[in-house]
Design a protein around this nucleic acid. Structure first.
Lengths: 115, 115
DNA sequence: CAGGATCCTGAACGATACTG
DNA sequence: CAGTATCGTTCAGGATCCTG
């Protein structure tokens, strides 16, 4: 497996590439919310604790650029924007589920319980 | 799912916790190397392109502290250290495999081929 | 309502030199 | 050989203010 480039950035293995698409602090939480319903910007913000406006916006843009979500803007006042998960996003969810289950397993085994 | 704390750091979901254990740039590449054989420090360094001494050392320490690898030091001159993956590490490998396969799939679908 | 534009901090990561 | 120690850089993410 050789090195490769995407969007001007170097990657050294497929794991790194995948994690740049759906990793970071916020992308999985966002995709997770969208997995079974369409949501507005403000709904996402209310639903995801601790996320800042900037992070919500930039992460949504990247997810959109990579084809994981679709952004639909309605020309109304006040503005209304809806985010919908795509087929590609739904397949990412399968990976998120695996990681999430593994996290729960690890937490259990390490004696961590939510406070 | 509430918030929780581990080693003085806050986590807001199990995914975040899992990725802090096996995520980052280097942990998966390291575990991947160790999945089917015991390796010495210098072997790992030769085998993992672009990794610095500092990163190799700190990531190995964290993996050890979290119980993913075992470090065995031989009291010889020159020094010899062997790293062995644990049962916990082997289960992490299953997750890495899923992410890796997903990365390959994504790359294929996005038209990326190693150069 | 759904953002854009700036400025800023801290943690992650890298480069280099040195050592038991 | 297998690290430590130190310094420097980069970048994810946060805080704040502004707007169509």
């Amino acid at each position: 497996m050789g090195d490769f480039r995407y969007n001007g950035k170097m990657y050294y293995n497929p794991v790194e590439f995948a994690m740049d698409r759906i990793g970071g602090t916020w992308k999985m939480p966002i995709l997770w919310r969208l997995k079974d319903r369409v949501m507005r910007y403000s709904e996402l913000q209310k639903d995801i604790p601790h996320i800042s406006q900037k992070m919500l916006t930039t992460q949504l843009r990247e997810l959109e650029d990579d084809g994981f979500v679709v952004r639909k803007v309605y020309a109304v006042v006040p503005p209304k924007t809806e985010y919908t998960i795509t087929e590609r996003g739904l397949r990412a969810i399968e990976v998120v589920k695996v990681i999430r289950n593994y996290g729960l397993e690890l937490m259990d085994e390490m004696g961590i319980n939510d406070k």
